[in-house]
Design a protein around this nucleic acid. Structure first.
Lengths: 255, 255
DNA sequence: CGGCCGGTTGAGTACAATCAATTCTGGTGG
DNA sequence: CCACCAGAATTGATTGTACTCAACCGGCCG
């Protein structure tokens, strides 16, 4: 039980997040005990989706919550003028199926082939109200999702397209680190238009953004889905994020 | 203490939200039982803040969570180039004090005079892991905050400044409705620059936005803090929000 | 009365959206 | 293996919107 090769490691639903209250150096940890995973496993079914398949749509009756096991999922919603807004990219060990008043608040689609645990809300709910420990762990995950949503909003509040793009790259880099994967190269499983819909800029602007970052010698694009940051300090100048050193923030007001 | 016009009614911490799983026609309800409120009350202290006072800052040790009793609070974070990004406006019955790895993830400031319950995390945490019922209610509130954060991101992803502004007005209108307050006129407690920092546009753009909406006959600005929507369909054309009455939502849920 | 703060308005500019043409890439079948 | 194709991505030219900077307004308070 010491070594966990896959992030999940073992069987049953799996949830990873940063603990809201104890330091962990940016690394996520498994929130569920083996016991809890087993208890969740008995109430869940495994579901599979093909690449591009829609898992549920906004407004559908929300009778299940999902725990992503493998693959990538996007949750999105319709925006005026036929555009789509990507709410989040879901990775392994994420939870999705948020609802309000009994209806899903977003649609979700499999970006790759996907396997997930499907947890009926009725069963989950009755389990939760009996098992405070488990519920606490799920609450931690919700806190994490909340932080991510707010980070997304922060990203979207930036004016410059390249800043948004850089922050997006930073997000995925941090995600890889948090998952314990090698982070020398950033893996972007989605395509350019998905990035555009997440960052709130057009496909064309995403492309131009990658180009300007490349020309400025800040990143190196190996292929569509792999980017490396070659000028870290230039990169941080754009994201405005000197890693965790508040003292430097004072000088950051330049340019 | 003078009178209790507060939607809370009664004593002790109070939490309102839309239930994620049961329909409620857009109205929030009190999530906590009197009993739970009493239990939370014993572990909490009442704190007061003057207008403009900072409640905590990003990076501070997060040893307490707050439950807003009266007044308005903003949570914000620093953006590049000395700008500030408003993460959320908190109203009565809201919960705040989100942390990651033991540190607050944002700063908060009292926008008006404020009273709040201060709940030490240690006590709260040990209470929660014993009381699944209470914890469930807090989880519901977290779901609500998550939805709001995502709505904020959605707002920020809009390209047009007037659209953002209209969606902002819509947000506060719905909030008033959810709280059971009269909604014929929208009350905006914050000033123009706060609106700008929330919607991701400049102070000047906010001003122009109000002007164009007024000129187009869509809204009527009584004073700095009071707006009325006079052309509903024109308004909805801008927000792109086909009037989703609760009844229609239910039908949308049927596959 | 004068200064200050929050807000409005104006002129010029920069940046990203748009529309459109072109290239690149990966996959398929001949 | 290559030719071909379709979709993804890049690039170009043009336009429009919102930012910037700055002047100005009006209420409020000393």
């Amino acid at each position: 039980m010491s070594k966990t090769p896959t992030p999940s490691g073992g069987f049953g639903p799996s949830i990873q997040a940063l603990d809201p209250w104890t330091p962990s150096a940016g690394r996520m940890r498994q929130l569920l005990t083996d016991d809890e995973r087993a208890r969740l496993a008995v109430m869940s079914t495994i579901v599979r989706f093909k690449k591009g398949e829609i898992i549920y749509q906004e407004g559908d009756r929300a009778d299940a919550v999902f725990n992503l096991n493998s693959g990538i999922v996007t949750t999105y919603s319709k925006a005026p003028r036929g555009r789509e807004h990507v709410v989040a990219f879901l990775l392994a060990d994420d939870l999705f199926g948020l609802s309000a008043e009994g209806l899903y608040t977003n649609s979700t689609r499999a970006l790759t082939a996907v396997t997930a645990y499907r947890l009926p809300v009725a069963a989950l709910r009755s389990r939760l109200t009996k098992d405070a420990e488990l519920e606490f762990h799920i609450m931690c995950k919700l806190c994490q999702e909340l932080r991510q949503a707010r980070h997304h909003a922060f990203l979207l509040s930036q004016r410059s397209a390249v800043t948004k793009l850089a922050m997006f790259l930073q997000l995925f880099e941090q995600l890889q680190i948090a998952k314990g994967e090698p982070a020398s190269e950033i893996h972007l499983p989605m395509d350019r238009s998905d990035i555009g819909e997440y960052t709130g800029i057009t496909l064309a602007a995403v492309s131009r953004g990658f180009r300007t970052l490349t020309i400025r010698g800040i990143i190196k694009v190996r292929d569509r889905h792999h980017v490396r940051i070659v000028d870290r300090s230039g990169f941080e100048k754009i994201t405005g994020d000197p890693p965790q050193s508040p003292t430097q923030l004072v000088e950051a007001g330049r340019n």
